[in-house]
Design a protein around this nucleic acid. Sequence first.
DNA 1: TTTTAATCAGACAATTTAATCTGATTTGAA
DNA 2: TTCAAATCAGATTAAATTGTCTGATTAAAA
Lengths: 143, 143
Amino acid sequence: MTVFFSKKCEHGLQAILFMATKDIECVCPAEEISNKLNIPKEFISKILQSLTESGIVESKKGKSGGFKLAKHPSKIKLIDIVEAIDGLESFNTCVLGFSECSSKNPCPVHHQWGELRVKAYEMLSSETIDKFKEKTLNKIKII
Amino acid sequence: MTVFFSKKCEHGLQAILFMATKDIECVCPAEEISNKLNIPKEFISKILQSLTESGIVESKKGKSGGFKLAKHPSKIKLIDIVEAIDGLESFNTCVLGFSECSSKNPCPVHHQWGELRVKAYEMLSSETIDKFKEKTLNKIKII
DNA sequence: TTTTAATCAGACAATTTAATCTGATTTGAA
DNA sequence: TTCAAATCAGATTAAATTGTCTGATTAAAA
């Protein structure tokens, strides 16, 4: 196993990207997200609940309830979701698992991995998710 | 959780890097590796057993037995160890968890992640582990 | 030959992550 | 007011990963 994001985080990212393709006021039931993205309903529901606490989504109870983004997609970056679900720890720990890895006491790949880590962070934080609307829609259509 | 390598793989990489700092004929008991790298003895023993099957290390039973590299460090790359333990799947799957992610149907970060993935692969495959001797020794000394 | 120190093998336990189930609560609409 | 459809909350299960234990086997050295 070699992952980057946990399943929870992958699901969360997909769900938020999906919600960003919809009208900002549109309330999205967990069931719809579940169907469109092929994620177990209760699982995505739980993930979105936790993102509610992080202030990224809002939930509306009762009939015709569901989830909606708490902010406009132009204010949300992928890194916000990653931080809320997986945390940012991996951006600060040694990829080979050595303790206290730093430029003073680098592991054999410290320098190269450091560069990649910065690039990965940039990938997640340079653009807001309103830019991803079209690609997300194409992706969901064919799944 | 956001990882790159599994713990198993981290431990395996560390152990092989450590063994590469020693004389090629030197047989290294699991206990020594365990102590030096702070990895549970039975766990690293299991990992090295599986690397024996992959042809990366050899084991010698009985008194004064232990593990040694099956090839010279100048013939071993980090990617060999990663492949044997974690496999190379993550270098071919979508980082956001979408199915069938390709340049024809890219996920929102397909292009950027593709670049990073290539760089990560290069990091693991461009140099053989004999080059890492000094840095590994420094790393183990301070742990 | 006996002792000792090591791997090997495989069952077992603990932890973490992923997913499911159930029931209470909320709320819009008939 | 009642019903239906949704979230919410928390317990439970399942699966994967990580780590441990025990006993058999091997082989060097006393």
